[in-house]
Every structure is written in C-alpha cells, then in structure tokens.
Design a protein around this nucleic acid. Structure first.
Lengths: 116, 116
DNA sequence: GTTGAGTGCAACCAAAGGTTGCGAAAGGTT
DNA sequence: AACCTTTCGCAACCTTTGGTTGCACTCAAC
C-alpha cells in the first residue's frame, strides 16, 4: 500500500545484523543492547543504533526496566514485514513462471515451424 | 547453506532501487543501464553501479550487443533468492506462532489459577 | 558513598549510494 | 569520409550509513 513504509520495512530487515537481532529476540525473548551485543560481532553502540532503526519502523519496542531497556519484537509489525517478503517473493515467482511458459511456447513454435 | 552468499543475495535485493530494477527487467524484458535509468529516479551511472552489484551476485547477466549492454535476469539465481526470502519469512512466521501459542497458554493458566 | 553494569551522546572513520564531468566507442546521417 | 548522436566506462566528489572509540550519566548493590 504505502511504498515509503514498505521501503523502510525492507531496509530495516535487509541488514544482516538486524535480521540476526530479530532472530535472537524471537528465539531468546526480550533483550538489551548489551545482551545482544554479546552475541553479535559488533559493539554495543552499533547494536544500539540498529535497535533505534528497528524501533523507528516499529518492528520492536523498548520497555524501560530500572537502568535497563528491554527490547522485544512487535509481533503484528513483524507479521506485516513477513507478508511483504512473501508478496515480493510470489510476484517474482509468478513472473519467472510466466517467462518460463513463454520461453517454452516459443520453443514449441520453433520446432513446430521448422520441423526440428 | 552458505551464509556469506545468502547475505550477498539479501543485500542485493535489500535495496529498493535494485528490487525495482529486477521488477523492470522481469516485466519489460532485457534492458540497458540507459533504458532502466529512464524509468528510475536516479542517474544512469547510479543504475550502472547497481547493475554491477546485481551482476556480481549473479542475479543478472549482461550480453554485449553493439554499443549496448543488454542485462537480463538469471532465472535460476533469482529463484534461489526467492527461496531465501520465503525461508526467512517462514522461520519468523513459525516463531511468531509459537510465541502466540505460549502467550495463550500462559493466559489460560492465569485465568485457570486466579479464577478470572 | 563508592563501585559496577548498562545507557546515551559525540567525534571520528570507512564503505555504499548518488551526482557531475569527461573521454571513448558504436551506429546513423549527410 | 566527416559528423553527430547515443551509449558506455572511468574518475572525482559529496552524503548517508554502519562501525568504532571515548566519555559522562544513571541506577542498583555493597
């Protein structure tokens, strides 16, 4: 629907670090910048920036807990992102199928007309 | 299988301009840097750089034709990329379902124990 | 109150995406 | 053949983004 929002979602999940972060938050439950950075090949500050990006597009949200900030995945928004992925995937898939069908048709006509 | 290749495929299709380029090549057939740049909000040089990126990961390949270079989608490689998309999508989808199920179970126990 | 873990902010660096400018090669025109 | 147009590739430059280090602040625990 909204192309700008779509692009933001894409660029958010397009980064391998951010995809891993979402994976970690999903598999291990809520976490902080520090806890995530311990399981990633980048510093806490880099993780913090990525968390800000994911937060900005609504894929995660923070919950202050004392001196810590617990981040967790926003399920609805992630479900929307997954829908985007499968939408693009099926679009390309459909076009690949159509191209293949056309190619086969051409091939068929060629052998048909030229007799082999 | 190969994480590095996966990340390269992802970062290739993560860029909105490159996704649009693939869309155009699929819908309109082979094209040149110049023809694509006419349908995109960036200059030919920018398109050329994106084409080089897509070429490097094997999503497209060029065919010299006189003074032009015709680019077209590599169907097998794009099919592989589509598979990556759906793989990540279904992984997240499965985890979201599991989280939802756990949440419902907890909720059920809570009302069960506290009686409302 | 001091110490330690977690956070945020600022400065600095490198890579990526984008632009302009220019020169070279291929094709069409006269 | 000479000329003009189109397309391309290369180089220089700018801006944004991902990453780092360094420092100051807060909250919890001792």
């Amino acid at each position: 629907m909204n192309a700008a929002v779509d692009d933001e979602l894409w660029s958010a999940i397009g980064d391998p670090i951010r995809r891993t972060m979402i994976d970690l938050l999903l598999s291990d439950g809520p976490g902080t910048a520090t806890s995530l950075s311990r399981r990633l090949p980048v510093t806490r500050q880099a993780v913090s920036k990525h968390l800000a990006v994911l937060d900005r597009v609504g894929l995660i949200h923070a919950e202050p807990a004392g001196r810590e900030r617990h981040y967790q995945v926003d399920e609805a928004q992630l479900a929307r992102a997954v829908a985007q992925l499968s939408a693009v995937g099926s679009t390309w898939d459909a076009r690949l199928r159509r191209i293949k069908r056309i190619a086969e048709t051409i091939e068929l006509h060629r052998t048909d007309n030229q007799g082999g």
